[in-house]
Design a protein around this nucleic acid. Structure first.
Lengths: 188, 188
DNA sequence: CGGCGTTTTGAGAGAGCTCAACATCGGTGG
DNA sequence: CCACCGATGTTGAGCTCTCTCAAAACGCCG
């Protein structure tokens, strides 16, 4: 497994405009022309799409350190909506500059490719984690990735990452606190 | 959303050796030196890793048309185990040839990058699908991606894609057959 | 025909979700 | 300094859904 340093991807967004979004503020909509590539500095952006039946499908919850809708680099228009879930800072770089950098700098190109590969990896991992039924198992699998517990105050974010309600996560954590020595997870 | 034609990625594996794997046969193990990149022609390969606690974490279920462990292209050794879940055909290309092709052919490089971007997209989508609780919702979301129902005989594979048991999927399908006109999904 | 894998359907149990109440903490303003 | 407020954390009780275990009905092929 490769370890991607987020600072390196940020090189691709060097000199870009920083833009601040209020909670629920949209960044772009379906069918908009792709003019910029965005990098989440802080906060969270939700990418979603409306289905024919009117249901909303979430495509990505972009966290800080992630690039928004990587595939939009290959498209002339967006195929999803982007909206801040809370106060968020993004860095924007014109797509043509983005492509120019990739073309001219083989190093940056490598950074971009390995970033994509690592995103594939972690997205697949997350998908597998979310097939686990018990929150304890999900938490274990998540922690096994070399991740550590976020500070108190961000546990709700962890809960939504794991795909469970905050109550369920709180209960799991409470249970672990009360029996700190018992490490065996009773699978099934 | 970009549409990736699997034939194009296959260009990267042109001239590679085709290898046949029996069910449960391993392809490589953790710590093995990365010598080849693999493309699944037919069948399925499971990528997994053992955690310190002895639990097995699944990282990817590579389907036909997918490249195995894309991130291994950037690593000297594998960080996961690969094993066929059933009879499977893979195409193998030496990593150095793989890299040489990417370097020499800007077109192939583009194919590779857009393939990675599309994989990121679909993996994230799958992760979101698997946070839905009802199999009906998961199936709807899956179908909304422009995918169509696989032929009878492959519904079990769909079930595992959706992260549900085959019984649950069969029941859902049976329910839809009996009320073919009712299209509204009662999302509470 | 017999065997094997897929598809169906049933019944019970388990685990998380929902709804609800309440505690805690930090910041704000009187 | 204290009352108030919003967001986070905690805990309880019932509901809902899928999973699990079980038992058949098919369907295909040697």
């Amino acid at each position: 497994m490769i370890t991607i340093m987020p600072e390196r991807i940020e090189q691709l967004f060097a000199g870009g405009l920083t833009r601040r979004l209020e909670p629920a503020q949209p960044l772009f909509h379906v069918a908009d022309v792709v003019a910029f590539m965005y990098f989440v500095l802080q906060g969270q952006i939700t990418l979603s799409r409306q289905t024919e039946n009117g249901a909303t499908v979430i495509l990505q919850q972009a966290q800080s350190g992630q690039v928004l809708a990587e595939a939009s680099a290959f498209s002339s228009t967006y195929h999803c909506n982007a909206q801040a879930t809370r106060a968020t800072h993004v860095r924007a770089v014109p797509v043509n500059l983005f492509h120019a950098r990739l073309k001219q700098d083989a190093n940056l190109s490598q950074v971009w490719t390995s970033y994509l590969a690592s995103q594939v990896q972690s997205a697949r991992m997350l998908a597998e984690i979310r097939t686990l039924r018990k929150v304890g198992d999900r938490l274990d699998a998540w922690l096994e990735q070399g991740r550590t517990m976020p500070p108190k105050g961000k546990w709700q974010d962890l809960a939504s990452q794991l795909g469970v309600t905050r109550e369920a996560l709180y209960r799991e954590l409470a249970g672990r606190r009360s029996i700190p020595t018992t490490l065996d997870s009773h699978t099934r």
